[in-house]
Design a protein around this nucleic acid. Structure first.
Lengths: 156, 156
DNA sequence: AGATATAGTCTAGTTGCTTGACTATAGGGA
DNA sequence: TCCCTATAGTCAAGCAACTAGACTATATCT
């Protein structure tokens, strides 16, 4: 029950798009986690929530996860360690490369995916109701376009 | 030079609004920090960037900062410790309350504020160019509206 | 066959937070 | 007026989410 900032005295000059983006993103993450915890997945942290959608059904190497997420392979390893400990994924040898191991979902892990999908849809429906379907779609499209345009700008 | 994820193999099913929001917000934070570091403020971390706009010119108590930001007072204290060490803010006694101390900007701190404002405007201009002014304004408005609607939903 | 790159692991350290325990002052009754 | 409780700030310890460095085993290039 962390105190939120909405309910307090007037904060100064926080009305730029970066703030708006952060607020919205932060709320989404919270809502998502709340739903997952509510569905019984109380081990579901934000960082783990990020890893999971990058693992595909056929399994994925840790190094690939690291590359996809833009994190060090050590970070990935720690997340995978945790997910293995909680029975969500498992490591199996990669038949094509004896150095590598493939991270795959356990049956339990697949149920997490399904729950995550439900949570995602539920939040999207909520947002669409708040804004109206047309404006929600507009917002989504504008964000996707912005992200695509941004895709390869500052880094690289 | 952290690896970004744009440049790698195809990731699965990441096309919901939460992801879009996170991506955009993450990019904004990065762009902001890059500009501040480029302007010579290399101590400028993301967390500190969050604290600074909540301090008003007349000075603000730490407890107020904690409430505004939704963080523990210990967290605020650590940030303020760091900002004091880097000469950005200072702690002065509160004449109205002998328990309290007021956090105010040093002259150096005020120059940071100005630089931050420039960085903010520069990023906004960039985004507006990418999307077109009309669509950018639309996006901003939709985000503000969404945040306001969300303001008091899951927590409290 | 040898040089070099890559997948994963281990160790150790940093940052951004948290809770718990404590001191000093404030403010409201009895 | 004394006491009780709430509040501002601080200190210490600990957890989560990372990072960089060093190492092993295997793969790949020449």
């Amino acid at each position: 029950m962390v105190k939120r900032l909405d309910d307090s005295s007037t904060p100064p000059l926080l009305t730029h798009i970066g703030w708006s983006l952060w607020r919205a993103s932060d709320h989404w993450l919270r809502a998502f986690r709340a739903r997952m915890v509510g569905a019984g997945y109380s081990w579901f942290s934000e960082a783990r929530a990020n890893v999971i959608p990058h693992i595909d059904r056929a399994g994925t190497q840790q190094a690939v996860l690291a590359e996809r997420m833009g994190l060090s392979k050590q970070a990935i390893q720690q997340f995978v360690d945790g997910l293995v400990a909680d029975g969500v994924v498992q490591r199996t040898p990669d038949p094509a490369d004896a150095r590598a191991r493939i991270v795959t979902f356990t049956p339990e892990g697949l149920s997490v995916l399904a729950a995550a999908n439900r949570a995602k849809k539920s939040i999207e429906a909520d947002y669409a109701t708040r804004l109206g379907k047309a404006r929600f779609d507009q917002l989504s499209k504008a964000l996707v376009e912005l992200n695509e345009s941004l895709g390869d700008s500052t880094d690289e």
